[in-house]
Design a protein around this nucleic acid. Structure first.
Length: 425
DNA sequence: AAGTCGGGGAG
DNA sequence: CTCCCAGACTT
């Protein structure tokens, strides 16, 4: 027997060992999760969409609420979109919710409300990519399809000592071929879940717990002592910072006790979510620390003109608090100002009556180069042009009770709750 | 292939 | 702080 043949034979033995002992471990150690209590393809599907880039512990309460509110494919397909989005509030990646409902309509209309069990049909559902298709087919229907996510690539890269960059596309394809070879006959669902369970509980990104690992004995990375340096993955670009000014506008008269919110555009960042209105803050002065506040009077003036341009008649009264919101690719620093609604006077009259003093102050200093009164705000790169151009979006006056009817990103949820706590309402 | 899409938990 | 998570979609 040649050296190559011996190597291939050893590889084959390592694969059989891996599949057998991993599956055995899973049957003893698997967690009791809500979507594992039935084999309802709809439940499996919902859970897999929620679990994209999201931890199990985060998903559990969302999953339970979701299937209570939308128990069947048809219930989801027929629900108002706002209800679906509200049920997703705080979970992130909100296009998942919209795609999911779109796919529910697909299933209702094309497949009679039954989640399809063939590869092309599942892959054709909105929001279902290579991983999720494999997960649905294997877990719900026990079809021998690989389901390769971040956990699986980490486990396989270590066990087989694969040094390919898992951030690259072709690596996932390679892993899928390998994962498919490992599936034991008739055990696709359990095996794929076992692979992910090992990644979640034992073969973790940092300091893997090798001693209790059921396949440590033949783990190539462990044997080579390099398990901590795998998988190889190019690191992501850091998010770009964005300074923004937000308005917490307190209503008067018929709006007393309520604050103004607006809806974001139908596409892009936080699509269709509700928020406090906010605008780009002018770039910090040269030499000024990033995140530094503008001089108070200049900030209030800038905010007043932004609101006016958006058709919001309100007077900024002062800085309330700062808030940060981190996305994958952006970090917002929001300076929130408390404002009071005003009667809708003609703009020129309003400006002279209320802002004469502030303008006099501005004239002698920092913002001397500002555009003339009533001129459009200077455009500068805000990184959120869609939202800034969509000031025409819907607006509402709400109190705390009304919050249950609108879906907010977490940062605005926290700001609104802080405000209503402060007001004691 | 690279950028766009949230939010939070672990270390 | 950094990393990354049961990824998909767009360009």
């Amino acid at each position: 027997m040649t050296t190559d043949e011996k190597h291939i034979e050893a590889q084959q033995e390592a694969k059989l060992f891996f599949s057998r002992f991993l599956l055995e471990w899973y049957h003893l150690q698997k967690r009791d999760l809500p979507w594992r209590r039935h084999r309802n393809p709809y439940y499996i599907w919902i859970s897999e969409i929620m679990l994209q880039q999201t931890r199990v512990d985060t998903v559990i309460p969302y999953f339970n609420r979701f299937i209570e509110q939308f128990p069947t494919v048809e219930a989801l397909a027929d629900a108002p979109e706002e209800e679906v989005l509200k049920c997703w509030e705080g979970l992130g990646y909100y296009s998942r919710a919209r795609n999911l409902q779109h796919a529910a309509k697909q299933v209702k209309e094309l497949y009679g409300g039954l989640v399809p069990d063939d590869r092309d049909a599942v892959f054709g559902l909105k929001g279902v990519g290579p991983y999720t298709a494999g997960a649905i087919l294997s877990i719900a229907f026990n079809r021998p399809e690989p389901a390769v996510d971040g956990n699986v690539m980490r486990v396989l890269s270590r066990y087989f000592l694969i040094e390919d960059d898992i951030a690259k596309g072709p690596t996932r394809v390679k892993m899928e071929k390998l994962a498919a070879e490992l599936i034991p006959e008739g055990e696709a669902g359990s095996f794929n879940q076992a692979l992910m369970e090992l990644g979640a509980l034992i073969c973790t990104p940092k300091s893997p717990r090798c001693l209790p690992c059921p396949v440590m004995e033949h783990c190539a990375a462990r044997l080579a002592g390099c398990e901590a340096s795998l998988p190889v993955k190019t690191k992501a670009k850091p998010p770009r910072p964005e300074e923004r000014m937000a308005a917490l506008v307190e209503g008067r008269g018929e709006h007393a006790g309520r604050v103004l919110i607006r809806q974001r555009p139908t596409s892009g960042l936080l699509a269709r979510m509700w928020e406090l209105p906010h605008w780009p803050a002018p770039p910090a002065e040269a030499g000024g620390a990033r995140g530094a506040l503008l001089p108070e009077a200049a900030a209030l003036d800038r905010l007043r003109r932004s609101m006016s341009q958006a058709g919001i008649h309100a007077r900024p009264e002062g800085h309330w608090m700062a808030a940060e919101h981190t996305f994958s690719h952006i970090v917002w620093t929001l300076q929130v100002y408390r404002c009071r609604e005003e009667a809708a006077l003609p703009l020129a009259a309003e400006s002279r009556a209320v802002y004469g003093a502030a303008q006099a102050e501005r004239a002698d200093g920092a913002l001397g180069a500002q555009p003339a009164e009533d001129a459009p705000l200077a455009l500068f790169d805000s990184g959120d042009a869609a939202a800034d151009a969509a000031d025409s979006g819907a607006q509402r006056w709400i109190n705390r009770e009304d919050m249950k009817n609108y879906a907010f990103p977490n940062v605005f949820l926290k700001l609104l709750n802080s405000y209503f706590d402060e007001q004691g309402t």
